[in-house]
Write a protein that binds this DNA or RNA. Structure first.
Lengths: 200, 200
DNA sequence: GTTAAATTTTGACAGTGTCAAGATTGGTTG
DNA sequence: CAACCAATCTTGACACTGTCAAAATTTAAC
């Protein structure tokens, strides 16, 4: 049952795709509703029938980012099920960093100021972001149970700080401050050590 | 030799002060050149003779932030000189977090996208930010020498990752994601433990 | 006191997000 | 098939933004 909407064909999805492309090429500051409409070939206000706001559009992009991230994490969980937990955790962290590295603009939208401070997250975005964090907490709990992570503090607390560490690294990478691209691999490993609390 | 400039009295400084106030009250998104001019009582384009750009204005604010942070750090170094290094390091970290907590908008400018990605840092800002990071690296070196921090990796590498941890926490706090205000003290302590690599 | 430089203003332009009103199209129902 | 309605798209408009150019004003220097 492929329903082809009215005039355009499937504007909503087309807009999302085009917006994501503009985002990748020029960053958020280069993404305007009008340019987006131009690129797709509709009038300036056409997008407003598919996204209430520019904020809503950004939220939709971020939402897609969370979904993608979610899936790649699930893939790791399944494929690495047999291995030692610690190995798959490392893979987890590397995948997380890789995502931030390859989709910096999307990552910035997912966790950055634009949505969470300047704007307001939509309901579905709020949900999936919470779910995403819960996914992380589940990992932490497992690792605590197996003695790989501290259980001196609660899973929540450990989850917060470890994720802060990971997030901090990603931000440094994305914002390009105090960090060189060549250092990334090395720092990722270092970060894993810190999280796992190993000296070497 | 107090030179009172031409018409206004001391526009440059007045603008900086007013801009910082607007920043605190409404965030970057509420800070426009025109509102700023209005607030100070000059015409829209008057600020452009004291700051080349809006970008230059933001850089000036960030620069002031670095200076303030620098001074509070220096104060710690002096006053805590006699104590054990580790104690003053903890104080250092807490002070850093406190600054981010009390001047979130300024902190966001200092390390955020607006200047480092959307805009371009001015020369003086670039300098003081580097100096600020070197200040941190000096701490790391001292702590490495005293066996408080790992010296498995270089000071640079350890400095990067530890600062990433600290920065990550501050960002979480500022952006208000996955973290409650009440958890701050607890998380700060936790973060110190992680950095110092102590399990409890 | 005249000249030059620094400072401020007014006018203008392109760009932004978004609302209101009208035009067009498609699906649904009699 | 005809009529209606709702979804979709366009045009026009408004307020706001950053910033440039040219004119006006004030101060400093000689």
């Amino acid at each position: 049952m492929t329903k082809k909407p009215y005039h355009h064909g499937d504007l909503g999805e087309t807009l999302l795709l085009a917006a994501t492309e503009i985002l990748r090429e020029t960053g958020v500051e280069g993404l305007s509703m009008r340019k987006l409409a131009d690129k797709v070939g509709v009038s300036r206000t056409a997008p407003y029938h598919h996204f209430k706001d520019k904020n809503a559009l950004l939220c939709a992009i971020a939402e897609a980012g969370f979904k993608q991230q979610w899936q790649s994490v699930e893939a790791i969980i399944e494929s690495h099920n047999k291995e030692a937990k610690q190995d798959s955790f490392e893979k987890y962290v590397l995948t997380y960093i890789e995502f931030a590295d390859q989709h910096p603009e999307t990552y910035d939208l997912m966790f950055g100021r634009d949505i969470w401070k300047s704007g307001t997250p939509t309901e579905p975005l709020l949900e999936i972001s919470k779910a995403s964090f819960r996914q992380w907490l589940n990992w932490v709990e497992e690792l605590q149970a197996q003695g790989i992570l501290t259980d001196v503090s609660s899973a929540l607390r450990v989850g917060q700080t470890t994720w802060a560490t990971l997030h901090g690294l990603c931000r440094l990478l994305i914002d390009g401050i105090y960090i060189n691209r060549d250092d990334l691999d090395d720092m990722a490993k270092q970060t894993i050590k810190i999280i796992l609390n190993k000296q070497n």
